[in-house]
Amino acid sequence: MVEKMTATYRFDRLEQTLSQLNREDCLIMAGGTDIMVLHKSGRGVPLKLPKPLIFIDHLSELKQVFQNHKDIHIGACCTYSELLEHPLIPVSLKNAIKTIAAPAIRNRGTLGGNICNASPAGDTLPLLYVYNAKLLLRSVTGDRIVEISDFIQGPRRVQRYQNEILAEIILPSVLEEGAYVVFEKVGNRNADAIAKVGFAGYIRINEARIEDVRFAFGAVGPTMVRSIDIERKLVGKTIPLADADIVQVVAGFDKIIRPIDDQRSTATYRKTVALNLLRYFLSMKQYQAN
C-alpha cells in the first residue's frame, strides 16, 4: 500500500499564505513544538497529519513588534527568545517567558502558537488574560479583532475561521503606569514542564487604593479561569487588604475553580495551590509596579 504523503506549503509572503488558506483548510504550523509532539509517528516515520500543512514561522510579516499609542502589538510568529530580547516587551512578560520551556524550545516556540494550541495548561495564557490581550486575525477579506477570552473556547478549540491566521497579539494599555503583574507556574521541573497550575495577577494602585485588579488561573479548567465579578469587588479597596476581603475573594474562586485529576497532578493539589497563590498575591503589603 502506498502511503499518501501530507501536502505541505511554504510561501514567501503572508498574502500567498492567506490565499491558500482561503482555498483549502490547512493545519497551520508556527514553531511546531506542540504539533510535532501531538502527531508524532515514531522514529524514522514522517508525520501523518489530518490536513495539508502550511508553514508560517518564516513569514516576516508575522514577526514585527511595535507600539501603537499605549498598546503593544506582537507578531504572532515571534519566538519566545525574540520577545526576551525585544526592548518593547514588558518586563512582566519577559519574566514569565523565562519560566517557559528551555532555551532550545524558546528559540522555536511562538506566542501565537501557544494561543492557537489552546491547551488548558498553555503557559502564556493566564498572563495574556490578565493583560486583556486582543487578537488580530487576518484573512483575504480583511482583519478582525477578538478578545483572547472569546477566541479560546475549550481545550484545543479556538474561534478561528479556516481562512484566517492569527497575525498579532495586542496588549492594550500595557504601558499604563503603576501596574504590578506577576506570573507563577508550578510544574514538576523548572524547565520543559507542562504546568500543573498557572497563575497571573495584575494590580494597579493609586495612593493605596486599588484602581484595577485581575486574576487568571491556568491548568485548573478547560480554559483559563477568570472572574470579572470577583475582581470588581476589590476595586476601591485599600492596600494592605483586610483579612475579610481576602477570605471573600478566595472563597469566590474556591467555587469556580474545578480542576481535574490527570497524569500530571490531582484536582485537590491544583485547587489548593491555585488558591494559595491567590492568597499570597492578595496578602502582599505593597505592590511595586513592574
Binding site: G32, A101, A104, N107, R108
Partner: peptide, 25 residues
C-alpha cells in the same frame, strides 16, 4: 518530544531540538 535535549542542533546558529523540526521548515 522536546524534553531531553539529546537531539539538540543549531539552526541558523540557534539551539533547537531536531525532533521537533519538520524539514519543510
Amino acid at each position: 518530544e522536546g524534553e531531553c535535549g539529546a537531539c539538540s542542533v543549531f539552526v541558523n546558529n540557534l539551539l533547537q531540538n531536531s525532533c521537533l523540526i519538520p524539514i519543510g521548515s
